[in-house]
Every structure is written in C-alpha cells, then in structure tokens.
Design a protein around this nucleic acid. Structure first.
Length: 146
DNA sequence: GCCAACGTTGGC
DNA sequence: GCCAACGTTGGC
C-alpha cells in the first residue's frame, strides 16, 4: 500500500519549538502558519500522513518523523479564519539526522522544496524522496504506517 | 492591476 | 549580522 500515505516536511526553528520539546509534549498543534502555500499544504494533509520534522537556522537537519493525528481545523491562535492548524505526534526519531548538506548533495533529493524553495515552511515530499530520507536517517517505519 | 517599498525567512 | 529570495502591502 505504498500510495496510501502522503509525506510532508515541516520546518521549525529549534529555539521556537524543537523536536525534543515535541517528544516531551507527545503531540502538538502546528500553529502559526501565515503563508498561503504552506497553509494549502496543511489543508491537504490527511490523517495518518507522515511528516518529517526539520530544524531550520540552528541544526539544519531533519530530526524525526511525525504523524498527522487530526486534519486541518481553524488556527486557535488567531481570529483570522484564513489560517489552519493540524495536530501532529512524533513517531520516530532519526538514528542519523539528515542534514541540509546531505539533502543538497544527494542526487535524488535535489528537487525537494526544501532545496528549491527555502522559505516555504510546509511542503510535500514525494514517496521516492521519503524513502531516501528514511534510509539516510537510518530508520525503518512499521509497514502499517506506510 | 502594476510595481516600489517594506517585512520576513533562513542559509551562509 | 548580512543579504538574497520571496511574500505582502499600499499608492497610483
């Protein structure tokens, strides 16, 4: 069932919300997105989709994999109806964090939005790219997650 | 509806 | 801390 799940990548500065904090929280709502393209990606997420968690600015590496546990709903941190959040929970921490350098230098990851659109904070990842990232990260997900 | 000015993001 | 890239805003 390789096409059942979509893959995504979200960025966050660890000084604002780190993977470690996310692990302690157990789950979080992904708030604060104020960009239409990123918002559209949030709205496209389906329950059980898998989301790579990237640390921007400090670290510049993918720390782990999260899963969508609640699909898009209005962002409670604003009255502006345009913005939405999803709920995520961490499911796996990378054995080897996948750095931006790794991604840029890997031939199969050159076309990721992370490389091409450095300012986008929520982006889709293709199935093929996701498999490369998982392999570089040294983790295997349970088959029932894919 | 164009575009200059301005603000923000994020790599370096 | 700088600056390139990009999004948003507002005057015309």
């Amino acid at each position: 069932m390789k096409n059942k799940t979509s893959f995504w990548l979200v960025k966050q500065e660890p000084s604002k919300y780190s993977w470690e904090t996310f692990l302690l929280d157990g789950e979080t709502l992904w708030d604060g997105v104020r960009n239409y393209q990123a918002r559209n990606n949030l709205q496209s997420m389906k329950k059980n989709d898998l989301v790579f968690f990237y640390h921007s600015v400090t670290g510049k590496e993918i720390k782990g994999v999260a899963q969508v546990i609640r699909e898009a709903y209005p962002d409670p941190t604003t009255d502006d109806a345009r913005w939405v959040v999803v709920d995520l929970k961490p499911i796996s921490t990378m054995k080897n964090c996948v750095s931006l350098e790794d991604i840029k230098s890997h031939k199969d990851l050159q076309d990721t939005a992370l490389v091409k659109q450095s300012r986008l904070s929520v982006m889709p990842i293709t199935y093929k790219e996701s498999q490369v990232i998982l392999k570089l990260g040294g983790i295997r997900l349970q088959a029932n997650l894919l």
